[in-house]
Design a protein around this nucleic acid. Structure first.
Length: 579
DNA sequence: GTAGGGTTAG
C-alpha cells in the first residue's frame, strides 16, 4: 500500500517533465515511460564508470535541465556523491543551474555523509546560500575532517549574518584544532566565543580544550592556573585534561606539580587511569633515577594492578638505570600474576640480559619468545646485535646480521646504524665503511647516526680528510652533525699539528652556537703550548672561560712555566682566572 | 591513546 502511494506521488512529478520524451515515443504511457527513463539514468550513473559520455547520446530529447528532475534523481539514487557528480555534469553539459532547494538538499546530504570537500564544492554555485543551520553542521563536518581553517572561516561568515552556533559546535572545532596542532586557531575561536556571548558561564569542555592548548604550547603552568580556576567553580574536566597537564609537567621535570595534580584528581574522585600513571612513570624514568620505580611500587601498594604495558615500561626503565636484578624480579612477578609477556616485554628483557652481557640467558629468552609464536623481527635482531656490540662481540653481531638476510628479515636503518656503531667502537673501520655503502646501495636514507661513529673513528685514527669527506656527504644530504662531531674534528686537527685550522673550526663551532667540550679546549691549549703560540693560547683561553670552563691545575702549571720562561706579560683576564 | 631496537660520553 505504502509503495503504491509513493509511486503515485513520484509519478505526479514526472508529468510535467516528460512531454518531450513521450511525444517522441508515441503511444507509450507517459508516467511509466518517465519512471523507466529515470530508473535507467540512475542505473547508468551508478554502474557505468564513464556515463557522462553516453547520457546525452542515449537520451537526446530528454529535458535534463529541469531542476525538479535533479531532485527526483537525488531522491531516487540516495547517493549524495553520485548526485553531486550528476549535478556537476548537468551544469557543464546541459546549461543547468541548480536552484536553492536542490542545493540545500544535496548540501545537507553531503554534510550528513561527512563529505566536507564535496559539500565545499557546492558552495561555488553562484546562487547558492546555505541555510545557517546547514552551515553549522558544515562546521562540524569540516572540523571532523581536519579542515579547521575552513571551519573557522564559516564561523566568521556566520558571525557577519548574526547567527550564533552552539557551544557544542565551538567545542567540536576546538578539539579539531588541537588535533592538528593549530593552537593559534584555538585562541582565535575562543576569542570569538567570548565576543559572541555564547558562553553564559564556564563550559567545562571548552576550558578543558584551552588547558590542552596551553600544554601543547608548553605553557603548562598557565594551563594549571586555568584548571584551579575551573575547579573553584565546582567543575571538573575529564581525565585527558589532567593527563595533558601531567605530561607537560613531567617534560619540565616539575614533579611536585605532578603530584599536586594527582592529589587533586583523587580528591575530585576523578581517578587517575592507568594511562595517567603510565605518563608519570615514563616521565620519571627519563630522569635516569629510581623515582619512577618508587611511584610504581606505591601504586601497587594502593591496590592498582599494573598491566602488561606498565610492566614493560618499568622493566625497561630499570634496565636503563642499571637495576637489572629488580627488572628480573618484575618479569617473574608479572608472569606470576598471570600476565603473559608479549614481544615488547620479551624484547626489553632480552635487552636487559644483553646489557649485563649474559648472552646465554638472552638467547634462551629469545628462543622462548620464538617458541611462543612471536615472529623474529628486525627489532629483536637489532636488540641482540647492539647488545653484542656493547660487549665487543662484533663477529657474532655480524653473523646475526647475515642471518637476518638469510631468513628474509629486512634490515632497516637502525639495524645498520647499530652495527656501524659497534664496528667503529671495535676499531673495524673498513667493515663499518662497507656497511655504510651497503646501506646506501640498499636505497636506505642514512641518518646522522650512520655517520657520527665513522667520523669519530676516522678522527681518532688521524684520517681527518676522510672525516671531512663524510661531513661533506652529510652536508649534501642536509644532515646536521651533532656538536661532538665537531669536537672530534678539532682534536683530530690538533693531533695532526694543523693548529690554525683547528682554531678556525673552534671559532666556527662557537659561531654556530654549539658548545665545545672542555677536553677540546684542553687539547688545543696543550698543542698551542707545545708550539709556543702564546697569542693563540690567550684567544683560546678567553673562549674557554666564556663557555664557563676552568683550567685544570696541571695545565695551569705547564702554562705558567711556559709563559714565565718567555718572560710573558700576563693579561689581567688570565691572571684573575689563574689565581 | 598507552610499551620494544640505533643516536653524546662515561
Amino acid at each position: 500500500m505504502m509503495t503504491m502511494l509513493l509511486r503515485r506521488r513520484t509519478t505526479s512529478y514526472f508529468r510535467n517533465l516528460t512531454t518531450e520524451t513521450t511525444t517522441q515515443q508515441g503511444g507509450c504511457d507517459k508516467d511509466q515511460n518517465f519512471t523507466q527513463i529515470l530508473n535507467e539514468i540512475c542505473t547508468i550513473t551508478r554502474t557505468k564508470p564513464r556515463w557522462e559520455k553516453t547520457l546525452l547520446s542515449q537520451y537526446p530529447f530528454f529535458n535534463f535541465s529541469n531542476p525538479n528532475f535533479f531532485l527526483l534523481y537525488h531522491n531516487h539514487q540516495k547517493n549524495s556523491f553520485l548526485s553531486l557528480r550528476f549535478l556537476h555534469w548537468l551544469t557543464s553539459h546541459c546549461g543547468f543551474s541548480p536552484d536553492q532547494s536542490s542545493c540545500d538538499v544535496l548540501f545537507d546530504a553531503l554534510v550528513d555523509a561527512g563529505a566536507c570537500k564535496a559539500a565545499k564544492s557546492l558552495l561555488d554555485y553562484p546562487h547558492f546560500t546555505p541555510k545557517n543551520a546547514s552551515l553549522e553542521s558544515y562546521i562540524r563536518c569540516l572540523s571532523n575532517g581536519g579542515m579547521v581553517e575552513e571551519a573557522f572561516d564559516v564561523f566568521v561568515s556566520l558571525k557577519k549574518v548574526g547567527f550564533l552556533p552552539s557551544v557544542s559546535t565551538f567545542n567540536v572545532s576546538l578539539l579539531a584544532c588541537l588535533k592538528v596542532g593549530r593552537t593559534d586557531l584555538v585562541w582565535k575561536l575562543y576569542e570569538h566565543m567570548l565576543e559572541s556571548g555564547v558562553l553564559a558561564s564556564y563550559d567545562v569542555e571548552t576550558v578543558g580544550y584551552l588547558i590542552k592548548a596551553f600544554c601543547a604550547e608548553n605553557e603548562v603552568f598557565d594551563g594549571y592556573r586555568l584548571l584551579r580556576q575551573v575547579l573553584e567553580e565546582g567543575l571538573c574536566p575529564d581525565n585527558t585534561v589532567f593527563n595533558s597537564l601531567i605530561t607537560g609537567f613531567c617534560k619540565e621535570g616539575e614533579y611536585t606539580r605532578v603530584s599536586e595534580i594527582l592529589h587533586i584528581m583523587i580528591s575530585m574522585k576523578c581517578n587517575p587511569s592507568i594511562y595517567t600513571y603510565q605518563e608519570i612513570i615514563n616521565g620519571l624514568f627519563k630522569r635516569k633515577n629510581a623515582e619512577g620505580f618508587r611511584v610504581f611500587n606505591d601504586l601497587k601498594d594502593r591496590g592498582y594492578f599494573p598491566d602488561n604495558v606498565m610492566y614493560t615500561t618499568v622493566i625497561k626503565g630499570l634496565c636503563d638505570i642499571g637495576l637489572f636484578g629488580e627488572a628480573r624480579k618484575l618479569w617473574f612477578e608479572m608472569i606470576h600474576k598471570g600476565l603473559v609477556p608479549n614481544e615488547h616485554t620479551y624484547n626489553v628483557m632480552i635487552y636487559g640480559y644483553c646489557k649485563i652481557g649474559d648472552f646465554v640467558e638472552a638467547r634462551k629468552l629469545y628462543e622462548e619468545m620464538c617458541g611462543r609464536g612471536y615472529a623474529e623481527s628486525v627489532v629483536s635482531y637489532t636488540t641482540m646485535i647492539s647488545g653484542l656490540c656493547l660487549h665487543g662481540k662484533t663477529d657474532e653481531a655480524l653473523s646475526l646480521f647475515h642471518e637476518m638476510s638469510r631468513k628474509g628479515i629486512a634490515r632497516d636503518l637502525i639495524s645498520y646504524n647499530s652495527l656501524i656503531n659497534g664496528l667503529c667502537q671495535k676499531g673495524e673501520l673498513v667493515k663499518a665503511t662497507d656497511l655504510l655503502h651497503e646501506l646506501l646501495a640498499q636505497g636506505l636514507e642514512p641518518s646522522v647516526s650512520s655517520f657520527t661513529p665513522l667520523i669519530k673513528r676516522l678522527c681518532e685514527v688521524g684520517d681527518i680528510e676522510g672525516a671531512k669527506r663524510l661531513l661533506k656527504d652529510m652536508h649534501d644530504r642536509h644532515l646536521e652533525p651533532i656538536a661532538t662531531t665537531h669536537d672530534y674534528i678539532i682534536i683530530g686537527l690538533c693531533k695532526e699539528g694543523n693548529l690554525t685550522e683547528s682554531m678556525e673550526w673552534l671559532l666556527d663551532m662557537l659561531s654556530w652556537k654549539l658548545k665545545p667540550k672542555e677536553q677540546t679546549f684542553e687539547h688545543l691549549i696543550d698543542s698551542l703550548t707545545q708550539e709556543d703560540r702564546l697569542d693563540d693560547i690567550l684567544i683560546v683561553l678567553d673562549l674557554m672561560f666564556r663557555e664557563g670552563y676552568r683550567l685544570k691545575e696541571s695545565i695551569i702549571h705547564s702554562l705558567v712555566s711556559k709563559l714565565s720562561k718567555e718572560n710573558f706579560h700576563f693579561p689581567n683576564l688570565l691572571l684573575e682566572e689563574l689565581v
